[in-house]
Design a binder for these strands. Structure first.
Length: 260
DNA sequence: ATTGTGGCCTGCCCGC
DNA sequence: TGCGGGCAGGCCACAA
């Protein structure tokens, strides 16, 4: 599903749309437009304008317009970005590769004949005009030691729940969190505020490494733990039976032998 | 303020 | 072969 690695791929793809005039905008399902501005305002802000920058903050893709407005795109778990018909990622876990036209929720037609399309079968993503980027915590790809410390300090939440809280740290989703904690040898249910300085350093090291690895491999579902994330799955490191827990409302797979 | 829970949304997979 | 239940999780509203 689209976590930081996929959205970064979408961002790079979206750069191909920069500088090109938007001629038509179609919102095929009003539910796809989120936030205070409705579909009409969003359409009006885009039409006859050009995208001037493609930025990513966590899982939020922001396309700046020459009007000063910003188009925010989030992709939920099944959202896909296509520019000129080319998808930003190849396989998307939990989504379908059929790409039915009815799943196209936002269709931005460009004056040169190209297009920028968001396809989202389950409508869990959305588009918003001028999204509030301040709500998001530091981006997981560039978070500093001090920022990570602040994100965890004093929290009674489970560590994994904290990592998934986009207001505290932006970009980590369920699959990447499991992979990251497995690599860092930290149990997902640990209290976030209980990490020692050494454990925080270890977490940050593996956060950076995991983000870069999954981007290089092409998706958040490309981690080493992924294949064992099922009943009967075994830890790829030590062979112990993996445990399944619900943490932060999400299915979590972890190794009770080496994650402490 | 923090923390946890449930609902949204629908394609897909499994068992019958 | 068709049907129905359960599952997946990013995000948000809501409760305590």
């Amino acid at each position: 599903m689209p976590e930081l690695p996929e959205v970064e791929a979408y961002r790079q793809l979206a750069e191909q749309a920069l500088g090109r005039m938007v001629s038509t905008v179609r919102v095929t399902d009003p539910r796809f437009v989120r936030g205070p501005s409705g579909p009409a305002a969003l359409v009006g802000a885009l039409r006859q304008h050009r995208f001037v920058a493609a930025r990513r903050h966590g899982k939020l893709l922001v396309l700046d317009l020459d009007s000063g407005h910003r188009l925010g795109l989030h992709f939920g778990m099944t959202g896909r970005l296509l520019v000129d018909g080319t998808p930003g990622v190849d396989g998307l876990l939990y989504s379908s590769d059929r790409g039915l036209p009815v799943w196209d929720r936002l269709i931005v037609g460009l004056a040169d004949g190209g297009s920028l399309v968001v396809s989202d079968p389950r409508l869990l993503g959305g588009a918003s005009l001028d999204p509030d980027e301040q709500r998001l915590g530091p981006d997981a790809r560039s978070v500093t030691p001090a920022e990570l410390r602040r994100a965890l300090a004093g929290s009674a939440s489970a560590l994994k729940a904290r990592l998934l809280d986009q207001a505290k740290l932006a970009g980590v989703g369920n699959l990447m969190a499991d992979e990251l904690l497995w690599r860092a040898s930290l149990a997902p249910g640990r209290r976030a505020g209980s990490l020692s300085p050494a454990e925080q350093r270890r977490l940050l090291h593996h956060l950076r490494a995991t983000v870069e690895l999954l981007m290089a491999r092409g998706g958040s579902h490309m981690g080493d733990l992924m294949a064992e994330r099922h009943p009967g799955g075994r830890c790829p490191r030590d062979g112990a039976g993996l445990r399944r827990s619900t943490i932060g409302g999400r299915t979590s797979w972890w190794c009770p032998a080496h994650q402490r």
